[in-house]
Write a protein that binds this DNA or RNA. Sequence first.
DNA 1: TTGCTCCTCACGTCACGTGAGGTGGC
DNA 2: TTGCTCCTCACGTCACGTGAGGTGGC
Lengths: 275, 275
Amino acid sequence: MLKIGEFARLNGISIATLRYYDQCGLLKPLTIDPETGYRYYSLDQLPRLNRILALKELGFPLDQIAQILADGLSFEQLLALFTLKQAQAQHMIATEQARLTHLAARLRQIEQEGKMPKYEILLKNVDPQLVASYRAVVPLPHGFTLSHSRVVAYLDQHHIQSDSPAIFRLYSTTQQRSDGLYIDLEASLPLPTTLSGNDEITIQTLPGSLMAFAIHTGYDLALGQLHTTLHSWLTDNHYQLIAPPRHIRLRHDPYLSPTQYITEVQFPISPTQTR
Amino acid sequence: MLKIGEFARLNGISIATLRYYDQCGLLKPLTIDPETGYRYYSLDQLPRLNRILALKELGFPLDQIAQILADGLSFEQLLALFTLKQAQAQHMIATEQARLTHLAARLRQIEQEGKMPKYEILLKNVDPQLVASYRAVVPLPHGFTLSHSRVVAYLDQHHIQSDSPAIFRLYSTTQQRSDGLYIDLEASLPLPTTLSGNDEITIQTLPGSLMAFAIHTGYDLALGQLHTTLHSWLTDNHYQLIAPPRHIRLRHDPYLSPTQYITEVQFPISPTQTR
DNA sequence: TTGCTCCTCACGTCACGTGAGGTGGC
DNA sequence: TTGCTCCTCACGTCACGTGAGGTGGC
């Protein structure tokens, strides 16, 4: 019969752990002195404790360990449990490896610039969104505002006032023509309820998607660098662009200085198939 | 000015998260309506929030993120923080990969045997231990008990009664000679205090070490399989044996049936240098 | 009036670690 | 008597999630 301290030392674990396992019923001492409350363990309990510790190292939570040891699981359940754990471990590895990649990139930046990077690239899910849209190939730099005003005019006709930010989808990169730069652009504004469109204006639902996004502060035509950064981020992190990039004009009041503008750039993405 | 729900949706995070960041001072709303308590955020707070989220993805705890953003860290501290995180991520990957290996092994066993394996192999740290030892090449099967009784006799001479289990160090594997099997063996018993030895008995401190160990139930000469299992476990998990294996006779009373015997097998190990 | 969004507690999570304050056996 | 080991609460951990119960604006 072993006192709790001896039993703990034998297994290289803490007394608190054994007391906790007692409390949650995972491993009760063989006897408890009713006078003193001292817990006494038997050497015969070693195999059970070791099984517990081994399963814990495999990453199982204590309640699942209790189930496994109680033998209340069918062969299939056992198999499923272990296969699931395997998948979880693989997922953890992938996550940590991505983290390593990002950390390495940051370290390089810190060493070079002595500072944090300008853009933070993050992931989020964006819901589908009902919008009124106007698409055309338009000249820069005013194409954004021109297209936007077409949609605003349409909404005005229908007496709808939208204070949601404008969404631009970029179907092409900027293209040099003889008379200047052009871009294939779609301006959209969210609608509270569906309408019928017309020749110019399309009513549609922008698809929801996983997005890699970043916030840009300042004039929204100086976004080339951010696009480049996002593109290389995608390949580094095994994502692919699955739809046109979006610009969201979060703040773009004409009476503000352009340095105050805030634009969100969204890249709709999905994970690249590995293999 | 954005209400908390709008600001949350904009970043794809929960309202609870924003409230929590307010509470712990990481990101306070720009203003709070004193009447209603409503929190109002500004678009200018987007970059800070994104930095927070990015650092969180890199694995930093919120209090460290606060420090980093407060810019209260020197270049060296920043570098150290990131390098440490990198090391932690690498460690995590190694741990998870070991877990995967073990899970795969278990899965194979479950599929083949439909049952949990016989032995659980675990790690623990063992402290140094002052002992009285007798070492000799002895015949099997009685060599263990013979050597053990030499040490017991020595302790009796000194009127010391040790009820700690006997420790055997196996300096060789079993060897076939013309007159039977032999083994180079050292039997030890823990001492409460140091003594002077004699021709036969050495007083020494068994070194502490990281141990891979397993518990064996039953007759303690049927341990060949466990040794083999332990050896292949070592190579699978990138450890190497750095000292003779130990057998600890946790229960070995002569009046018990050998099926009741409990022996712990310990392999002193250290991680194999990778590269 | 009905929904919707917001508010503030307060509690739960998971596997223990860490005192505080006290007891039992040598 | 002094150490040592053991006991039982109770609280802290980390970053929120989840009600309960209530309020404000359309």
